[in-house]
Design a protein around this nucleic acid. Structure first.
Length: 572
RNA sequence: CGGGGCGUGGCGCAGCGGAUUAGCGCGCAUGGUUCGGGACCAUGAGGCCGUGGGUUCAAAUCCCACCGCCCCGACCA
């Protein structure tokens, strides 16, 4: 491709809206262009990167026996109602009506559609196992799109689904995906970790995430200093210390205007650990649950949802007022009825605790869990914090930010049961198909490569996903000798299957050098009158900054050698 | 949804105690000089100043409403 004939349009200055490194680079380099919040065009350069990522993904999924298909991006309400997710998905789902006023959505994911295909296509155990995948645009009306392409409302996802007879089959399909994902991210030059994850809307089965450690990451990864334990905070389980306080009779205390744990503990000059935080969870047509955790811990909502049902969410202030007759900051488990109580297991046998009195501006002290209230269940429902201890080896846990690139998930029979996707087993018994679902965000790989490998000058693509492998930088392109050599080499490099970006723009040298670095093309070969005169040509490796000098006769071979090395480093 | 910031040629910005033809840098076009790290000269094109309403003899500038974009936070009581 010739630079001056291309749609590539680099910006000299950072676009105002871009804050994160990847967003800045992608916008400045002309890889993407924003149309609306969380909605982007992939310009030719960015699209080449996406296509290369797709191809790596295809190769690796085909390798484990995946079959590519393409499902519709819109789906009618009815199929989503079969699984219950038409309601569960809430505002994250884009919905619309067709001309006959029938409801549709822009699909945020495709488990239901897969189950629908499976229920007619799979009849017997002989049809199993299957792995079906697609690379397709997904739509989610995110609460807050941000960081350019990293959290957007329309994005490209590889989603695959495994169908098996039984749990053992699922375990195998899951393991195949784990291996395929590991190879995919390695080949894309991403530095990542595999962590235990929470399923969220998908269900409650085993799942893991592939997370790139990056400052802008929105996921928090808990990792053990000693053993290999790695988990998303949403799924992490930690060991905490039980604290005990003096047993005393229960008594009301005046705490005017002090609502939060921090305010109350400071006001009373007591440890946060002696407070009990009470959070009310409600769900439509279900009994409310009052969840108790110690003042120094947050509640892990996933645990609540997994234990009691996905529909549960923290109550609104109105609901709280109605049930407790007090503002949120003053509610507690003592002396009220009409809800179930679920407490963190660190509160078992706790005495001398402080909690809301169910009366504005008042708390109670001396709460003895066994004596004063009736807890239905004790479970570990606290969110891990740095300094907690590893459930495996008891070493200290630390927390880092990470960017979720992929997620693999053992769905089990949640969707197959809901949609009646079953098959006839060897023994003649009808059983639901056991499913798994697996996703990768393509743009996130692109952005992550910029985050991890970029610098002030721009990005430095891993050669496997670079839009072009070699940047042929031509100085004084009008010079006939230069022009002739550039044409000759371009042809020779093309014959060696190089993808080339040829910069023979009639502009000053600095712009070309800077653009080549901004665009992050892995190998740069410079042709100039001076180089021709001296018979010395520079080949620069963008990522390492290594400079290799070649003569007229060996320059092509040297480029080939460098390319091979770069691919080899990525385990390609 | 709450808080903060911002909407002025393609990009980055100035102008905003009301008043000529709305400026600057970059980019773009034409001609010329340059040519290994964002060069220079000359000429030129390009703007319903986010949208709607109001105040005024007069609005990019003041007032109201709306829309859009970015950043922080989001039921942790």
């Amino acid at each position: 491709m010739k630079f001056d004939k291309s749609l590539i349009n680099t910006l000299r200055e950072d676009p105002r809206e871009a804050e994160s490194r990847s967003h800045r680079i992608l916008l400045r380099g002309g890889f993407i262009r924003q149309l609306a919040s969380g909605v982007h065009t992939y310009l030719p350069l960015g699209w080449r990167v996406i296509m290369r990522i797709s191809n790596i993904i295809r190769e690796e999924l085909d390798r484990i026996g995946g079959q590519e298909l393409l499902m519709p991006a819109i789906a009618p309400k009815e199929i989503w109602q079969e699984s219950g997710r038409w309601d569960e998905y809430g505002d994250d789902m884009f919905r619309f009506r067709d001309r006959k006023a029938r409801y549709f959505c822009l699909c945020p994911t495709h488990e239901e559609i897969i189950a629908d295909i499976a229920r007619s296509a799979v009849r017997s155990y002989r049809d199993l196992p299957q792995i079906w995948y697609q690379i397709q645009t997904k739509f989610r009306d995110e609460l807050r799109p941000r960081f350019g392409v990293i959290r957007s409302r329309q994005f490209i996802m590889k989603d695959s689904y495994s169908l098996d007879q039984d749990q053992a089959g699922l375990d195998h399909s899951y393991e195949l995906h784990r291996q395929a994902y590991t190879r995919i991210f390695r080949r894309c030059g991403i530095d990542f970790e595999v962590v235990e994850a929470a399923g969220g809307l998908m269900g409650t089965g085993e799942s893991q995430e592939f997370i790139a450690i990056a400052d802008i990451g929105e996921a928090q990864v808990v990792s053990c200093r000693n053993c290999g334990y790695r988990a998303n905070v949403e799924a992490a389980v930690g060991l905490g210390e039980i604290e005990s306080f003096e047993d005393e009779p229960i008594a009301e205390i005046h705490t005017p205007g002090k609502k939060t744990v921090v305010e109350v503990s400071e006001f009373l000059k007591v440890s946060r650990k002696s407070l009990i935080k009470s959070i009310l969870f409600t769900a439509p047509e279900r009994k409310p649950i009052l969840v108790l955790s110690r003042g120094d811990y947050d509640i892990n909502e996933n645990v609540i949802r997994n234990s009691f049902g996905f529909a549960y969410r923290p109550a609104s202030s109105g609901e709280i007022l109605k049930l407790f007759g007090a503002e949120a900051g003053y509610i507690g488990p003592y002396g009220k009825e009409g809800f179930e109580i679920c407490a963190d297991d660190l509160l078992k046998n706790a005495k001398g605790m402080i909690t809301g009195a169910n009366k504005d501006d008042y708390h109670v002290r001396g709460l003895n869990i066994d004596r004063d209230i009736k807890v239905g269940r004790f479970i570990n429902l606290r969110q891990v914090k740095a300094g907690d201890h590893c459930p495996g080896c008891r070493s200290e846990l630390i927390i880092k930010n990470g960017l979720e690139l992929g997620h693999i998930f053992k769905l089990g029979t949640k969707y197959s049961t809901a949609l009646n996707a079953d098959f006839l087993g060897e023994n003649g018994v009808r059983k639901p198909i056991v499913m798994g679902s697996y996703g990768i965000g393509l743009e996130r790989i692109m952005a992550c490569a910029c985050e991890q490998r970029g610098d002030e000058r721009g990005t430095a693509w891993p050669i496997s996903i670079a839009p072009y492998e070699l940047y042929l930088l031509v100085l004084n392109p009008a010079d006939s000798e230069v022009k002739a050599l550039a044409e000759k080499w371009a042809a020779e490099l093309a014959a060696r299957q190089f993808t080339l970006l040829i910069d023979e723009r009639d502009i000053s040298a600095g712009i070309k050098f800077n653009d080549s670095e901004l665009l992050g093309i892995p190998i740069r070969l410079t042709i100039s009158p001076k180089a021709i005169k001296q018979g010395r040509f520079d080949i620069l490796v963008r990522e390492s900054g290594d400079l290799c000098v070649a003569g007229q006769n060996d320059v092509i071979e040297k480029c080939v050698g460098i390319r091979e090395t770069l691919y080899r480093e990525l385990n390609e």
